[in-house]
Design a protein around this nucleic acid. Structure first.
Length: 423
RNA sequence: AGAGGGGUGUCCGAGUGGUUUAAGGAGCACGCUUGGAAAGCGUGUGUAGGUCUCAAGCUUACCGAGGGUUCGAAUCCCUUCCCCUCUACCA
């Protein structure tokens, strides 16, 4: 969430930024917000000055009562009783004005960083770099949805039976490959200083608001019927919300956390072409890295996180590219996002396997996540990224490494899997 | 899940309608003291909003959260969340 003081002081920058993110009527909205805030302030002032009078009178009544001057006290009481209505009325009006302002404010996305390219769709994302080369594929190379059947390692039919579409069952070497990747990714993160967290995978409404999933995107999450809790769409939500309503000691920054969780996404209405097999699921495993920084170090951290993710892909020997997302393709809360895509040899296309973002103060403002610098409390910057999401990595590994003696496991994973081939 | 007891500042903890302007202690910061340290002494020590060019000052709200009663609420009432004890259940 953007802050009102920022918008007031930088209304032109705000309008330009919102336009880059393709918010319609950006200029009108900013004008409305400032007007609503003016109204809020003026009502608040009226309420507070009435309150002040009433507080002073209440104190006088107290003193009079104690010294036994009942008649004087009664007179005062009648006087202040009349104020009650005004106070309540002004307070309610101020609260209503604030709510109106917040309701509008929470619908605004974060402003993009200056390096974010203009553009509306994924085609306009900027390719930052490409690593490796196209895997040499045989003419009869099979897509992963055929390979998983051939080797009987991931079973969609069984998932359909026990749950529904998009909930595959991993079996035998399929399950072991999953476990190997999870441990590999966690170990690599711990090696470079991340602290491992195992958070709950159900979260409450406040947490959903803190990281920006609510109030807008509840349609993407599964909800429990009795308690109204949400199944997490990403570990970003619980791990970042650990710091909700926290003033972090400056000495503890930066904070670097990593966690593995299953992720649940309803993906309502997004099924169709290009989502076969492992390409899009309702439940999948992901290792998430989350960092909390002082503003001046957050962009350096973003680059480090990007390099960390790239290191994982290089160790797995996957041909990948890095994209800088354009204004129209970026997430709601992000100021700058890099997507990492791996080449899928049999599908002949790029698959997104990671998204690394700096949210600057956007989440921190919702979370009330602050630190103190020279005695003043300031909002922290939050960042996160997938390192990595499993299904598409598995898809690419299966497709790119298929051969006559089965699917070859990358060397670095063999100590984790305990086998060299799936055959 | 049932019965009972709780939730107060960074922490411990007092406070059952009006000098509470949240006592007292610990911690922390700064200063004095010291060869240095400890002890001791002194001062300070939350968050958010408003006012203000800045600062100071003034002011409003905040005692788990939300609402109510009252001239006045940490204190009384209602709702709700969380913790503890016992019982029940359970990996």
């Amino acid at each position: 969430m953007l802050t009102i003081p920022f918008i007031r002081a930088n209304s032109e920058i705000t309008i330009q930024g919102l336009r880059k993110k393709h918010v319609a009527n950006a200029s009108d909205i900013v004008g409305q917000l400032i007007a609503m805030d003016d109204q809020r302030k003026s009502l608040l002032q009226q309420a507070e000055s009435a309150l002040e009078i009433s507080n002073v009178a209440a104190k006088e009544i107290g003193t009079l009562m104690q010294s036994g001057q009942k008649e004087l006290a009664e007179g005062k009481r009648a006087e202040t009783a009349a104020l009650k209505g005004t106070i309540k009325e002004k307070e309610e009006a101020a609260k209503a004005a604030e709510k109106q302002m917040l309701d509008l404010l929470v619908t605004l996305p974060n402003l993009p960083h200056s390096s974010v390219p203009e553009g509306k769709t994924a085609e306009e994302n900027e390719v930052v770099l490409t690593w490796g080369s196209l895997p040499k594929m045989e003419a009869d190379a099979q897509p992963h949805w055929d390979l998983i059947k051939k080797y009987d390692i991931i079973d969609f039919d069984l998932g359909n039976k026990i749950t529904g579409a998009g909930f595959p069952v991993y079996k035998g070497k399929g399950a072991r490959l999953q476990r190997a990747l999870i441990n590999f990714f966690l170990d690599e993160a711990i090696k470079v200083g991340y602290y491992e967290i195992q958070p709950p995978i159900l979260i409450n409404e406040d947490s959903g608001f803190g990281t920006g999933q609510l109030p807008d995107k509840e349609g993407q999450m599964y909800v429990t019927k009795e308690e109204g809790l949400f199944l997490i769409p990403t570990a970003e939500v619980p791990i970042t919300n650990l710091y909700r309503d926290v003033i972090v000691n400056e000495k503890e920054l930066p904070i670097k956390n990593v966690g593995h969780t299953p992720c649940f996404r309803r993906e309502a209405g997004s099924w169709g072409a290009h989502v076969r097999g492992l390409n899009r699921l309702h439940q999948f495993d992901k290792i998430e890295i989350v960092q909390i920084h002082k503003p001046e170090t957050s962009y350096q951290a973003l680059e480090e996180m990007s390099l960390h993710v790239q290191g994982l892909l290089q160790k797995l020997n996957l041909h990948y590219r890095v994209l800088r997302l354009c204004g129209g393709d970026m997430g709601f809360a992000s100021a700058l996002t890099y997507d990492m895509e791996v080449w899928s040899g049999a599908q002949n296309r790029w698959l997104e396997v990671s998204s690394v973002s700096n949210f600057e103060t956007f989440q921190a403002n919702r979370l009330k996540l602050r630190t103190k610098v020279e005695g003043k409390s300031i909002l922290c910057h939050t960042l996160n990224g997938s390192a990595l999401a499993l299904p598409r990595i598995v898809a690419a590994l299966l497709e790119n490494n298929q051969g006559p003696d089965g699917i070859k496991i990358p060397e670095i994973l063999v100590p984790y899997t305990g086998f060299t081939h799936i055959n």
